[in-house]
Simulated scan of single mutants.
Amino acid sequence: MNAVGIDVSKGKSTVAVLRPFGEVVASPFDVSHTGSELKELADFIKKLPGETKVVMEATGNYYEPIARYLHEQNLFVSVVNPVLISDFGGNTLRKPKTDKKDSLKIASYALSYWVDMKKYVPQEDLRKSLKLLNRQYQQASKLKTMMNNNLISLLDLTFPGINKIFTSPSRESDGHEKWVDFVLAFPHCDMISKLTIKAFARKYKKWCNSNSYYFTETSCKKIHDFSKECISSVSSEESTAFA
């Protein structure tokens, strides 16, 4: 029984090999995540006599290329939840934290739960890509919400409440929101309130045409009336929110 414990980090991994009763077959050593060094590691593992299992933690995306490579080399690979490793042996987790100690701990865990080790099977490329795209979408959505909230906070100083005047959903063709595009052109209520309704209508209609938005006299008057009632915290000359 050869338990190969791999502590995976960014750019390199630390490897240790243990056998039952604490026999150290290979003291912890580092392996860079390059094709040549991973091949050397796979060749080394294959030469170990007896049954061998390679165990590592599911550490973000770092473990995936190593696990996949060793799996393709026909080695038994198991990827374990880090929480299980951290609780193993009664430790609350790695105090102090060292890659060498962690690789030995992972190998020791593998020996203790030898028969329970589940074989790693790489995800299908399509499924993996969909999961990656979903994570990117979630991050982009959070960023968009954060930026929108920040913009609304700035508008509270220059044009408070203007975002609530627009009810149009995001445009399907490019994701643009009308209120966001509008305040980029009219960031301060004074830019509208100091104009006559006819003067603003000309500007607003021109803006709608330039940005592919539908113009109506009703919405134009609604915005103009709102700007007349709006109270800003800073003057248009002093405003730096959209500088």
Rank of each mutant, 00 (worst) to 15 (best):
Val24Thr: 15
Ala16Glu: 07
Pro96Gln: 13
Met117Trp: 06
Pro49Tyr: 09
Lys47Leu: 13
Ile152Tyr: 04
Lys95Phe: 07
Cys189Glu: 11
Thr167Cys: 12
Lys100Phe: 11
Ser13Gly: 03
Trp179Tyr: 08
Glu57Gln: 10
Glu237Ala: 11
Cys230Asp: 04
Asn209Gln: 10
Ile165Asp: 03
Cys230Lys: 02
Tyr120Met: 07
Val77Pro: 03
Lys142Asn: 07
Ile85Lys: 04
Gln136Trp: 10
Ser219Gly: 08
Gln138Asn: 12
Lys46Ile: 01
Leu18Phe: 09
Thr145Gly: 13
Ser32Ile: 13
Glu23Ser: 08
Ala67Met: 08
Val183Thr: 10
Lys97Pro: 05
Glu64Cys: 03
Lys228Gln: 14
Thr167His: 13
Tyr62Leu: 11
Cys189Val: 00
Leu157Trp: 08
Asn91Ile: 12
Ala67Asn: 02
Thr167Leu: 11
Phe226Gln: 05
Thr98Phe: 10
Cys189Phe: 05
Asn91Cys: 04
Lys100Glu: 14
Glu237Cys: 02
Lys221Ser: 06
Thr52Gln: 10
Asp7Gly: 01
Pro82His: 02
Ser86Phe: 04
Cys208Ile: 04
Leu184Arg: 13
Pro65Glu: 11
Val17Gln: 04
Arg19Asp: 01
Ala42Asn: 01
Ser235Thr: 15
Gln138Met: 14
Leu126Phe: 14
Glu64Ala: 12
Val77Gly: 04
Glu57Leu: 07
Ile162Trp: 02
Phe215Asn: 03
Ser9Leu: 00
Tyr109Lys: 02
Ile106Pro: 02
Val55Met: 10
Glu217Thr: 13
Thr14Arg: 11
Arg68Ser: 08
Ile66Gly: 03
Phe200Gly: 05
Glu124Phe: 09
Met56Ser: 00
Glu51Ser: 13
Asp116Phe: 00
Phe182Lys: 02
Lys39Pro: 02
Ile85Pro: 04
Cys230Val: 08
Leu75Asp: 05
Gly5Phe: 06
Thr240Arg: 10
Trp207Glu: 07
Glu238Ser: 15
Lys53Trp: 03
Glu172Arg: 14
Ile6Met: 07
Thr196Gly: 11
